[in-house]
Amino acid sequence: MPSPQDPQLYRDPWAQREAWRKHPVFSRRAMFAKAFPGFGVALVAFTGYVIVDNWLSKGKESH
């Protein structure tokens, strides 16, 4: 919070009330990351499943 002697004072009376919009929580990257919760974990789990399945089925004949 700026002190009264701080040269960087809010000149616009609404600027201090609108400052929350610039917080990193409300950035586009943060909003996109929260749009698909668990997607990264699911992607890693599925990739691991496919790799293990292909590795185990190498010795078997397919029809």
Results as ranks from 00 to 15, higher is better:
M1A: 04
P2T: 02
S3K: 12
S3Y: 02
S3F: 11
S3W: 05
P4S: 08
P4K: 12
Q5L: 02
D6L: 02
D6N: 15
P7S: 05
P7H: 05
P7Q: 00
Q8V: 09
Q8K: 01
L9M: 12
L9T: 06
L9F: 00
Y10F: 14
Y10D: 10
R11F: 02
D12V: 00
D12H: 03
P13I: 05
P13W: 03
W14L: 14
W14C: 00
W14G: 01
A15S: 11
A15L: 02
A15M: 04
Q16E: 11
Q16Y: 02
Q16V: 04
R17V: 00
R17M: 06
R17D: 10
R17F: 00
E18K: 08
E18L: 12
E18P: 00
A19M: 08
A19Y: 04
W20F: 14
W20S: 11
R21E: 06
R21I: 05
K22E: 15
K22A: 15
K22F: 15
P24V: 11
P24Y: 02
P24Q: 01
V25L: 14
F26A: 12
S27P: 09
R28E: 09
R28A: 11
R28H: 13
R29V: 07
A30R: 13
A30T: 12
F32Q: 10
F32R: 14
F32I: 04
A33T: 03
A33K: 13
A33R: 12
K34L: 12
K34Q: 07
K34P: 00
A35M: 15
A35P: 00
F36D: 07
F36W: 13
P37A: 09
G38A: 03
G38Q: 01
G38I: 08
G38C: 07
G40N: 10
G40T: 08
G40I: 06
G40A: 11
G40C: 04
V41F: 07
V41W: 06
V41E: 12
A42L: 09
A42W: 08
A42R: 11
A42N: 06
L43D: 01
L43Y: 09
V44I: 14
A45S: 02
A45I: 05
F46S: 08
T47C: 08
T47L: 15
T47N: 01
T47R: 00
G48E: 00
G48H: 06
G48M: 01
Y49D: 01
Y49L: 15
Y49K: 04
V50A: 11
V50W: 05
V50Q: 10
I51G: 06
I51K: 01
V52L: 09
V52Y: 07
V52Q: 01
V52F: 11
V52E: 08
D53Q: 11
N54A: 07
W55V: 10
L56Q: 13
L56K: 08
S57V: 00
K58P: 00
G59S: 12
G59D: 10
K60V: 05
K60I: 03
K60W: 10
E61G: 14
S62L: 08
H63E: 15
H63Y: 10
